[in-house]
Design a protein around this nucleic acid. Structure first.
Lengths: 119, 119
DNA sequence: CTCATATACAACCATTTGATTGTAGGTTAC
DNA sequence: GTAACCTACAATCAAATGGTTGTATATGAG
């Protein structure tokens, strides 16, 4: 069975990765300074393996990257992916602003437009 | 059983709500123009109840609001919450940009991303 | 070489999620 | 009033999540 790798899957992963306080905290820390997985793990009240899983979720979303250094893996933040998410949200906000501009048009022609086809 | 409502829960809900392509599509649609739940439901290849649940997730995250109009519920986008998420991500990017400089200054005036005392 | 450290990963379990169907209540149209 | 429509919500179920412990592997220190 073919599994499609769509754009939304990428976006899904980014937002899902950010939907957890521990993972957001990891992002904040490593975006400022690379840190080993075990250094990170010391900070949280959960097992090393649990933190490792959180790091893996962030890695799958490309919010962080790992760089091997000796026997350690240094976790670095990836601002490009953060930027991608920010831009998407800004786009949503733009849709709102555009809507506010054309509010009079919407009110004047009170028609329900059905767009058939996709999805 | 008492369930605490911490600040990060709010952020969790926002990002979790955005971590699904159907829900993001709903946001895009209603941010431009309010639509009834059933109008939205027509667009997606799933049951009405499923769409209703997606709307409920977005509502819990305050990304949308519902306004009763006759027998319909009109779903509207809430740009304030979108803005909240955007600002948070921008803060993360800022941390990256200024990581070489005085990081403590940034943290002191900022987001209180962590150190949540589980209020 | 030996030992402690750092990471990876599998197996397991409880809870949550995402979807379904079915039922019920409220509102509009006829 | 009756019928059709819109929404809400409960029950159910498979799959995913988030945590655990245990085991394996690789690297660095002595």
């Amino acid at each position: 069975m073919v599994v499609y790798e769509s754009v939304s899957d990428e976006t899904d992963r980014i937002f899902h990765a950010l939907a957890d306080a521990t993972r957001r905290d990891i992002v904040v820390r490593v975006v400022q300074r690379g840190q080993s997985v075990s250094t990170l793990a010391e900070r949280y009240a959960m097992s090393f393996a649990a933190v490792q899983k959180h790091v893996a979720v962030l890695e799958r979303a490309h919010l962080i990257v790992k760089e091997r250094r000796g026997r350690e893996q240094i976790v670095h933040g990836n601002p490009d992916t953060l930027r991608k998410a920010t831009v998407l949200l800004q786009h949503y906000e733009e849709l709102w602003r555009y809507r506010a501009q054309s509010i009079s048009d919407i009110l004047s022609e009170d028609v329900t437009v059905k767009q058939e086809g996709e999805s």
